[in-house]
Design a protein around this nucleic acid. Structure first.
Length: 220
DNA sequence: GCGACAG
DNA sequence: ATCTTGTCGC
């Protein structure tokens, strides 16, 4: 999965998309993981952070991070090829592997039905859920402004996820199953992870850690 | 050809 | 993603 051309990457996505399994998330599990990245412009590197939490209490368990050289440019639709190498490196540092992963990006809500969350799920063979801050593709009916409002996200006549207003008056979240999950349980998981803010707490924690590390490392 | 386009 | 201050609205 290293030095692919964009067209080869798209071809690989179409192939791997056939392996994605859609089904409800496990009813019982004990560790939830969340991953996020920050970018170090000066060295053209990525910092990958994975934070794990006990479920369902969401108490922090451990946090790992790695620096990784960028091997693939950012291309809309091919984000996973840029981020996954760093995420796998961080994953190897974990003492206790998560049962389920929350990802900062799309899952099924992708032109070839193979967003970042699907890719990570297939490689780790674990349930994953995608939670993106903005839309990549798909259409939906108008969303009410109140917290909790939701609309199915459609792509070519099939539902690929939900557009979900996590807080009143904020921009919605784009939630879609990655692997070993489905639209409804993906939304359920995100709802269960919400705290006071727009983003689910695990992703906020991973994002804050990644951002803080970037600034810390710039001074090194 | 034109607009859209996760992080 | 990152570059960036004040400011409008819950």
């Amino acid at each position: 999965m290293d030095r692919l051309s964009p067209s080869e990457a798209r071809q690989l996505q179409e192939q791997l998309a056939g392996r994605v399994v859609l089904r409800p998330l496990p009813a019982v599990f004990s560790v939830l993981g969340a991953a996020d990245l920050s970018y170090i412009k000066e060295t053209n590197q990525l910092i990958a952070v994975i934070v794990t939490f006990s479920w369902p209490t969401l108490q922090p368990l451990e946090s790992v991070h790695v620096k990784s050289a960028i091997r693939f440019p950012y291309v809309p639709g091919l984000l996973s090829f840029r981020e996954i190498p760093a995420m796998l490196k961080a994953y190897a540092q974990l003492r206790r592997p998560p049962d389920i992963f929350l990802c900062d990006g799309q899952g099924l809500a992708h032109p070839r039905r193979f967003g970042l969350a699907c890719h990570l799920g297939i490689l780790l063979e674990k349930p994953t859920v995608g939670c993106a801050k903005t839309r990549l593709c798909g259409n939906h009916e108008p969303l009410e402004a109140e917290r909790g409002a939701r609309q199915p996200l459609w792509l070519d006549g099939t539902q690929v996820g939900y557009v979900y207003r996590s807080k009143t008056g904020v921009k919605p979240l784009y939630i879609s199953p990655g692997h070993l999950a489905d639209c409804n349980s993906a939304l359920w998981l995100v709802e269960r992870c919400l705290g006071r803010y727009r983003l689910p707490e695990p992703l906020r924690a991973a994002h804050h850690t990644a951002t803080r590390l970037r600034k810390t490392m710039m001074a090194t």
